[in-house]
Amino acid sequence: MTTASGSKKRGGLFQELRNPERRLAYYMVLPALLIILAVAVYPIGVSVYLSLFDARINNVGEFVGLQNYVDMFGNNDFRDGLTNTLIFTVVSVFIEFVIGLAIALAINRAFKGRGLVRAAVLVPWAFPTVISAVMWRLMFQDQVGIINYAATSLGVISQPILSDQTLLLIAAIVVDVWKTTPFMALLLLAGLQTIPADVYEAARVDGANVFQRFFRITLPLLKGTILVAVLFRTLDSYRVFDLFFVMGQRELESLSTFVYKSVRVSQILFSVGNAAAVFTFVTAFLIALFFIYGLGMQTSTEDS
């Protein structure tokens, strides 16, 4: 199979297309790429374009430069959405990471009932977010909600959870932690299992205690997995929509709910919504860049 042209020469696209195997590879990747370019990349471009105009859903309108972005930052709902999204992302990902790592460390061994635990872990993950929001809403609810009842009887809260913005945000964080910590634990567990046992043996022989083993071996060797898992979860939390929209009955604002309401529900906020859409995209992109360049996350193991 190995042909001379299979060697590691970096040719241009035209040279590539002369090699039959490579040409076939491009043909095979092309349909998927075209779908992605047409339905994701191109629309992003349109969003950027629209955000510079005084657009409505039916016409593009006049060019207004960055005015939509100025209006966006002046919009209270947008600012609420941004604040809530940031708090939600930082707090929920942090808690999920800490608990997830603890769980991963605890179950990284052979024990009876692994299958049961793994299944239980997957149950929250498989739930539609919307449905978990509905279920938890029923539990937080002030008429029939067991959590609201318990919190009230213990004197923790003085008003119904669902009628208070701060409590709603906390409730959303609780649901997110419940739903995605198991997933975090699974990812970290898979990473833990790549650490060879003899490294620990050697450290033990050298007299390293539990904490030294954790900070000197586990954490450094797990760094790659941790960064990937935390980046995934961060970007996922950053675009939170379903949970806020359903839990908060459209009252709890996030960046995504603001964009949705602006471009789909409101008639007058359409252009501001486009600016917010672009803002959300660009900031998410910057978060990813920060993980890759700022924290040194490896982005590929492609060997060819």
Binding site: V39, S47, F232, D236, L255, A277, T280, A288
Partner: peptide, 24 residues
């Protein structure tokens, strides 16, 4: 060649905020 580029693009798509494209 360009395999890494293709993979990076594909991965980036799955994590970008979907609301950014709902209006277009």
């Amino acid at each position: 060649n360009f395999k890494n580029l293709v993979m990076t693009l594909i991965l980036a798509i799955s994590f970008f905020p979907a609301v950014a494209i709902i209006a277009p």
